[in-house]
Design a protein around this nucleic acid. Structure first.
Length: 216
DNA sequence: CTCCCGATAT
DNA sequence: ATATCAGGAG
């Protein structure tokens, strides 16, 4: 049973959302890109790697291979070398090339704007698809759940699950659809700056009074 | 579940 | 030395 005194989980989520908007008013996607294909590629590269690191390799990468056609026809070894420092470089290079080939042959050289189509691309699952849909096309198909969104949503007591798909479903029930992507963006900012994986800075956290995990 | 993997912080 | 970083595939 729920008590009337303590705010519901949804009320708490909405309060957290409002505070995040004030804390990080200018939060945007921190990956650098200039086309949907480049966003897709940068997002594939961001797996288990900082966005800062991705942004160090993409200028040379997109200078050499700016679009789906050039990436589809790239020499794989050269592609691997260009993305090497992001880690998992063999899988990433292979997936980027295979995805670009599929975009060229099956999607008329345009990155799909539907979840079902995006998930057909090698190396693309819900996290990457949600990022592309939100930032390339302005479509909030779901909530992007990356390592930060997972960790903070758990610490904030907004989900008890560990699987990204279940966390996403919990968050979609708690948050208004227009805020789905800005929620993820701002949680990521907060995760990087304050609610860090190793040593969360609860004493400096503006959400501490709303957080069941806070040690403040 | 394991594997993929380099760069950086702790 | 070890944990972590806008994950995904087998």
């Amino acid at each position: 049973m729920t008590t009337r005194k303590s705010p519901s989980k949804k009320q708490r989520a909405l309060e957290i959302l409002q505070r995040l908007k004030h804390l990080y008013p200018d939060a945007t996607c921190s990956l650098n890109y200039s086309t949907p294909v480049q966003l897709l590629v940068a997002t594939i590269l961001s797996a288990q790697c900082t966005d800062e690191r991705v942004n160090k390799v993409t200028p040379a990468l997109f200078g050499r291979f700016p679009d789906a056609a050039s990436l589809a026809n790239a020499d794989l070894e050269e592609l691997e070398n260009l993305v090497r420092s992001t880690g998992f470089y063999r899988n990433k290079a292979k997936n980027i090339q295979a995805a670009c080939r599929m975009i060229a042959t099956e999607f008329d050289s345009v990155v799909p704007n539907q979840m079902e189509q995006l998930l057909k691309l090698p190396g693309v699952a819900r996290k990457t698809a949600n990022v592309v849909l939100a930032h390339a096309y302005g479509i909030n198909a779901g909530v992007t759940v990356d390592t930060h969104v997972k960790r903070l949503s758990q610490r904030l007591g907004l989900t008890k699950h560990a699987e990204p798909i279940k966390i996403e479903q919990d968050l979609m029930k708690l948050l208004p659809q227009p805020d789905w992507e800005n929620w993820s963006i701002r949680l990521i900012y907060h995760g990087r700056a304050i609610c860090k994986a190793r040593s969360p800075a609860c004493s400096a956290c503006e959400l501490a009074d709303l957080c069941p995990t806070s040690d403040k």
